[in-house]
């Protein structure tokens, strides 16, 4: 088995397109769950709405920046729609409604017609939209593939990665500024105890709504980088459905909720980890160490989900503060 190439590809994933868009989406989810305590299990819905908003706009000749703006506006509307009925209620209602709404969004994107209106013309139905990313690719300043001493990217990936990580850094700066402010303090207070915040004159409903919108915007940005990177947007679950939401959750919890760099580091580690287990398992299989009756090629792809589920459980039960937990927080018995 070629450990060298496995290692190289794993390291590549640390900094790859996936890590970057995961990080963006995870920053959004961290605002929701980590800082505000909102149980958003429909993050893929925000990603899908951002992605489709962008793709449909580009497809119809809208300039790139305006298309991004349209995607962000659509995500804002989605957040308001989700928040209005749920944010006054107990936290778990938001979980139910978000997971359902994300699924609704995906079904609607996949549909061919909605109430007599032919939507496939815009969304491409179950085939999605392909090849809309040219306005983005045209801006690519790289002339060929990029090889640094530890990573290498194709020309296209290099450009997506550059833009993606630049956005991640800007987002981290933004979150840093927001969370050190009194606004961030109210957010965290609502996470700790909403009623206490209300008793001190803080409008918990409004602040939760702001958080839902803001985090959703980062989710939408993540979705955009994702579909720009593969220049195709598809309404499949693994692309923009519930499994994607759960991936982002694991990334956030892995890195540590409510921590500035948590979602970024969590995304990098998780992306690399997925790649590493995949490659190792496939390697073992080719070597015959894992017999095919036990695990075939298709099953290898499923192992990542099994590990993700197990990881989510174990992390939440034993290290809810993430793998780099703060000792003070650990001692606190916060659950």
């Amino acid at each position: 088995m070629d450990w060298g190439s496995i290692l190289a590809e794993t390291v590549n994933k640390f900094f790859g397109v996936q890590a970057a868009y995961f990080a963006l989406a995870a920053i959004g989810l961290n605002i929701h769950f980590g800082y505000t305590g909102l149980l958003n299990f429909g993050h893929a819905g925000f990603m899908a709405i951002g992605a489709y908003g962008l793709a449909i706009s580009l497809q119809n000749g809208v300039p790139l920046l305006l298309a991004v703006l349209i995607g962000l506006l659509a995500a804002t509307a989605f957040a308001l729609l989700l928040g209005a009925p749920t944010l006054r209620l107990r936290a778990d209602y938001l979980a139910i409604v978000t997971i359902a709404a994300a699924e609704i969004a995906r079904i609607l994107f996949r549909a061919t017609e909605i109430a007599g209106f032919n939507t496939r013309e815009y969304t491409g139905g179950s085939t999605g939209i392909n090849g809309f990313a040219d306005p983005f690719k045209d801006l690519n300043p790289y002339t060929g593939s990029v090889d640094l001493w530890f990573v290498s990217f194709s020309r296209n990936d290099a450009w997506t990665v550059t833009v993606g990580w630049a956005l991640v850094l800007l987002s981290v700066l933004f979150v840093h500024l927001a969370m050190r402010s009194p606004w961030g303090r109210v957010l965290k207070a609502v996470r700790e105890d909403e009623d206490a915040a209300r008793a001190l004159g803080k409008n918990a409903y409004s602040i939760k709504m702001q958080s839902l919108v803001l985090g959703g915007l980062f989710g939408a940005l993540g979705g955009m980088i994702f579909v720009l990177g593969q220049s195709s947007v598809q309404p499949t679950p693994q692309d923009l459905g519930a499994p994607k939401t759960f991936f982002i959750w694991v990334a956030v919890i892995l890195g540590g909720t409510g921590k500035l760099w948590g979602p970024v580091i969590g995304s990098m580690i998780f992306s690399a980890l997925l790649q590493f287990t995949d490659l190792t398992l496939r390697g073992f299989q080719e070597e015959g160490i894992i017999p095919t009756w036990f695990m075939d090629g298709v099953q290898v792809g499923q192992v990542r989900f099994i590990l993700m589920g197990l990881g989510l459980m174990l992390l939440m039960a034993f290290r809810p503060q993430g793998i780099f937990g703060d000792k003070r927080e650990l001692a606190l018995d916060v659950r």
């Binding site: 933004f174 500024l177 927001a178 050190r180 402010s181 009194p182 606004w183 961030g184 109210v186 702001q210």
Partner: peptide, 11 residues
């Protein structure tokens, strides 16, 4: 004053 998101960004 800083409990508004936009003003909060500017210390």
């Amino acid at each position: 004053k800083g409990e508004n998101l936009f003003r909060g960004l500017v210390k």
